[in-house]
Design a binder for these strands. Structure first.
Length: 301
DNA sequence: AACATGCGCAACCGCTCAAAG
DNA sequence: TCTTTGAGCGGTTGCGCATGT
């Protein structure tokens, strides 16, 4: 019943591949293709597991791979797609010719996550940390707000330290043209504005504790007195373009990419579909991607 | 110059799902 | 229909190099 094992675990080499092994594998695949990974190491004269051969080929030896640095455009694509599909590296890599899921994953973990965090963006939710804090305050009943806020501040400590101590990033909106399309300008805030961000969080938490009615209504609010409708309509562009949560609203004018993604993905997971249908991450306010790439990609640190 | 620390990347691990038997 | 395995995927680890002290 079943199949025979792919390799004898005791008799396989592990660790770094040598140039000789690479040559053997490459030349064998050039002649015979990659039809059966279980047989490839045996037939190619390699003391490797088929799985190891497959990884070596797909992540390193494939002739169509790029090995250089990621371009700004590629990085933007990764961030954008990650906000839609999360850690579905193979799906993201499928949109980047010559890049593997391992490449994308490594680049995300070593570079892009830090860049986003440094910009005050939660790399998981793609929301600004200040926005997350405000959401916490609006979601919880008063007795719990303080405790959770404390816990959240602990979670976000590093990122908050960035906000407090490093070069800040702030946004200003311009309802700029007659077609109704908004554009965002992206500016480094002044020192007092940076401090103001933290103050707003503190004020928001204290207001959450003082205004229980507000907490249970659907209408959310802004610590400064504005509603979250304002946040969404004219507040932080991150809340509009980066967030993948249910708070995102707006017309979906990025349908082309959605369609393309769906075509590429074929059978997208239900979770990913729901996420996209529900949140429209690629909505009309995907302002982040109007930002100068050098600004987007420059880490604060 | 020597050591410590951090970073980037390649490889491995473990899980899931589909297919073989 | 059930069991077992292959293939693929995301998470994690470990090594080598670069940089800082």
């Amino acid at each position: 019943m079943g199949r025979i094992p792919c390799c004898e675990k005791d008799n396989v080499k592990r660790g770094q591949w040598t140039p000789e092994e690479d040559n053997k594998l490459s030349s064998y695949i050039a002649q015979h293709g990659t039809r059966n990974w279980r047989l490839i190491p045996k037939n190619a004269g390699l003391q490797r597991c088929g799985k190891s051969c497959r990884l070596r080929w797909t992540n390193y030896l494939r002739p169509d791979l790029k090995h250089g640095q990621f371009s700004d455009a590629e990085e933007q694509t990764i961030v954008k797609l990650h906000s839609v599909v999360g850690n579905r590296w193979s799906l993201i890599a499928a949109q980047l010719p010559g890049r593997t899921d391992n490449d994308v994953k490594n680049h995300w973990n070593t570079k892009l996550k830090k860049k986003l965090s440094g910009m005050g963006i939660d790399p998981v939710t793609h929301k600004p940390f200040s926005h997350l804090m405000a959401e916490i305050a609006t979601t919880l009943a008063p007795p719990n707000v303080a405790n959770l806020a404390e816990a959240a501040l602990g979670c976000f400590k590093d990122e908050m330290l960035h906000l407090l101590t490093k070069k800040p990033i702030d946004f200003q909106f311009q309802h700029s043209n007659t077609t109704g399309n908004r554009t965002a300008t992206y500016v480094n805030s002044k020192q007092e504005e940076r401090d103001d961000t933290i103050e707003k969080i503190k004020i928001g938490l204290s207001r959450a504790m003082q205004e229980p009615d507000m907490l249970h209504s659907q209408k959310s609010w802004d610590p400064t007195g504005a509603t979250s409708a304002n946040l969404t309509e004219g507040g932080s562009p991150w809340s509009q373009s980066m967030c993948a949560g249910s708070t995102c609203t707006g017309a979906d004018q990025q349908g082309d990419l959605h369609g393309k993604l769906d075509e590429e993905m074929g059978e997208v997971s239900e979770g990913a579909k729901e996420m996209r249908n529900g949140s429209n991450i690629f909505n009309s306010d995907s302002i982040l991607w109007d930002l100068p790439s050098e600004d987007l990609m420059n880490p604060i640190v």
